[in-house]
Design a protein around this nucleic acid. Structure first.
Length: 657
DNA sequence: AGGTGTCCTAGCTCAGTCCA
DNA sequence: TGGACTGAGCTAGGACACCT
């Protein structure tokens, strides 16, 4: 479809015919010229395609590309969008800003005025760095680590949900004390929490109504709007409501049925269903013709939506007129090992029969463990497979240490990395001594690095800080040495080959090195990869991923493994019934997303028994009293209705492939 | 002498594991 | 199902070093 259009563009002298390749349902989305439009688009209804066309139309009509902003949910989506626009051959598309909200905020905040005004720096803390923040706060506030963690969680969630703006938001003195100490630590270390990015950007924009960022973009497009939290939706509002330039437009698109980040990121899916109330005069379109899924899948997905009983009138999908019938099968295996090898066998058979290519297959799993098992089974059969879970690259102390040095080579004054290195191999992170130094810094106005240098030279004396001076000396020497080395030599020093603890980060750094000219570029790339990982671009291997990662993906064949009660739906422990209901609703949407990824084949697979220990670890519900208890297939499979294929033993299915 | 901080160990809790 | 075991992660407290 795309190649037709690019030919068309060339043939007609860079004039895209807007309705070419668009069905009737999507045309109004592209043509609408008013201020606000909201596209509620069911799975596979061509929402992204329509948005792209709208952008192309704006550019062709002479809107300057620098006045266009497209916010996507992942870096992968932003990259794909730009590639597709380029393929369309629209002039100026490379200048259009297509990025995630995260990087938009980083960009806005890192402009010099913002840093000065806010007295903050856009240096976000990673997971292990937060441990040091907590350790230091535990000295200051004399509270236990566990309690501080809870308070930190409450702090970020309140900001994400804009709770602090609601009247009557209960905020105890203890919480306020925590907030103050937290902010003080962050200011001192010139750092911020990822969760603060959006609230700080909001604060900046609100306090500076004439800031250039507010009038920078004339046409804004936000994809996956249902996955934004309240703060993020507020930010979009701030960026779009300023009167200059005139005739601004805001287009949001998404699907509340596919909102899967409510419990994970406090997403606010009501934002899209209530969009027209919040933005009066909104032109709302609902897309229901699914151009992705086969008839059989659409039929089952609709039955599922109805049986969740979440809405009086569920938004049902319509098959496209030319939709194929497709294939859906529900398989059951005896044990998890049988499932892993059976699924691999099916995939191998389908590939050798020429039905699908490896790059057209995705395996969805609610748990990593079975994902790894399937990957190994596929590789044993000579088929390329890649797991793609959010693995902590910085899980080991050595990796954290190397990363901190890399950080310091990039920015010598990075207080967070210095803090990490000072306490890294001490069980208590040398928090008490560090607190002394911090106190001195507050009184003298010196930075940590200056204080430590003075302590080292003997110019200054603070009792009980010798334990910090010794590591500081080592850090200085090491940095001195590292700065004389070339980039590849630095990598060999920090992340040596053959050391298990740094193998993961070494892989990442080596890939980044290919595109990096110097240590600063290397750091930028590594940091971006760690904070905003991208899906690998593969055409010849099977992707094995979690449901959250599969957001926005399409594949010819989708295998959903471990379809077990307890895995999906997984409802953790919640205090209130209300929260539990919310979690269940999200699991239903997750399952709906899984169902609607395929263009041809959908396999749902589960096992009959599982070792008790494995079941407990994976939170699978298992019958009692046995070492190999029986497991239950997910209740969601029953909710596919009487027309769903009946579950069959996996081995029977293999015989018929 | 008394205070402070580190290091070390014992002990606690919790979750997972394993078995009758 | 229930009870014993194990290991991880954390904390409390003692021994020790160092400072005032």
């Amino acid at each position: 479809m795309l190649s037709n259009i690019s030919q068309l563009v060339v043939a007609e002298g860079f004039q895209v015919v807007w309705n070419e390749g668009l069905d009737e349902e999507c045309i109004p989305v592209v043509e609408y010229e008013g201020s606000y439009s909201c596209v509620i688009a069911g799975a596979g209804t061509g929402k992204s395609f329509a948005l792209k066309r709208k952008i192309a139309r704006l550019l062709e009509q002479g809107e300057p590309p620098s006045s266009l902003l497209v916010v996507t949910f992942t870096r992968t989506a932003a990259r794909d969008l730009k590639n597709d626009l380029e393929e369309l051959g629209v002039e100026g598309c490379d200048i259009v800003r297509a990025c995630t909200l995260h990087s938009l905020c980083l960009w806005i905040l890192s402009r010099h005025e913002v840093f000065r005004v806010m007295e903050r720096k856009t240096r976000t803390l990673l997971g292990h760095e937060i441990d040091y923040l907590i350790a230091d706060l535990s000295v200051r506030l004399e509270r236990k680590i566990k309690i501080l963690r809870e308070q930190l969680h409450a702090f970020t969630s309140a900001w994400a949900r804009l709770l602090n703006e609601e009247p009557g938001w209960p905020h105890s003195d203890e919480d306020r004390e925590f907030d103050n100490e937290l902010i003080s630590w962050l200011r001192f270390h010139k750092a911020m929490l990822v969760g603060e990015l959006v609230p700080l950007t909001i604060e900046y924009l609100r306090n500076n109504p004439t800031s250039p960022e507010r009038s920078l973009y004339k046409h804004m497009t936000v994809d996956e709007y249902q996955d934004l939290n309240k703060a993020e939706q507020r930010l979009i509002r701030l960026l779009s409501e300023y009167k200059i330039p005139e005739n601004r437009t805001l287009t949001v698109a998404g699907d509340d049925d596919q909102s899967i980040f409510v419990t994970l990121k406090y997403a606010h899916p009501e934002g899209i269903t209530n969009f027209k109330e919040e933005y009066p005069g909104t032109f709302e379109t609902t897309l229901v013709t699914c151009k992705r899924c086969p008839r059989r899948v659409i039929e089952l997905a609709n039955v599922f939506l109805k049986s969740t009983k979440r809405k009086e009138k569920p938004k049902l999908l319509q098959p496209a007129p030319n939709a194929i019938k497709g294939e859906v099968a529900i398989l059951q295996w005896r044990t998890p090992n049988d499932e892993a090898s059976g699924v691999a066998t099916i995939i191998a058979k389908k590939i050798s029969a020429g039905e699908v290519k490896p790059g057209e297959i995705i395996v969805l799993t609610p748990r990593k463990q079975i994902g790894y098992a399937i990957k190994n089974n596929l590789i044993d059969r000579g088929i390329g497979a890649q797991t793609c879970f959010s693995e902590a690259v910085l899980y080991s102390k050595q990796a954290q240490e190397g990363y901190a040095y890399l950080n310091l080579l990039h920015e010598r004054n990075d207080a967070v990395s210095l803090r990490v290195l000072l306490g890294i191999y001490a069980a208590d992170k040398r928090r008490k001594s560090y607190e002394k130094i911090r106190r001195h810094c507050f009184e003298s106005g010196d930075a940590v690095i200056e204080t430590l240098s003075k302590l080292k030279s003997g110019e200054l004396h603070i009792p009980s800080t010798d334990h910090l001076v010794a590591p500081y000396q080592i850090i200085c020497q090491r940095l001195q040495y590292l700065s004389t080395l070339t980039v590849p030599e630095v990598i060999e020093q920090l992340f040596p080959d053959g050391v298990d603890e740094v193998a993961e980060i070494r892989k990442l750094v080596m890939t980044a090195m290919e595109g990096a000219g110097d240590i600063h570029e290397l750091y930028d790339m590594v940091n971006r990869e760690i904070t905003q990982p991208e899906l690998p671009k593969t055409s010849d291997s099977i992707l094995i991923l979690t449901l959250q990662k599969a957001k926005g993906l399409t594949a010819k064949m989708v295998v959903f493994v471990n379809c077990l009660e307890g895995c999906i739906p997984y409802v953790g422990r919640y205090d209130s019934k209300e929260e539990q209901e919310k979690a269940l609703a999200e699991q239903e949407r997750l399952f709906f997303v899984a169902l609607t990824r395929t263009t041809n084949i959908l396999l749902l697979s589960s096992t009959g028994i599982m070792r008790r220990g494995d079941a407990a670890r994976m939170k699978v519900r298992a019958s009692a009293r046995r070492y190999w208890p029986e497991t239950e297939a997910s209740r969601f499979i029953d909710m596919l209705g009487p027309n769903a294929p009946s579950p069959q033993p996996g081995d029977d299915y293999i015989r018929h492939v």
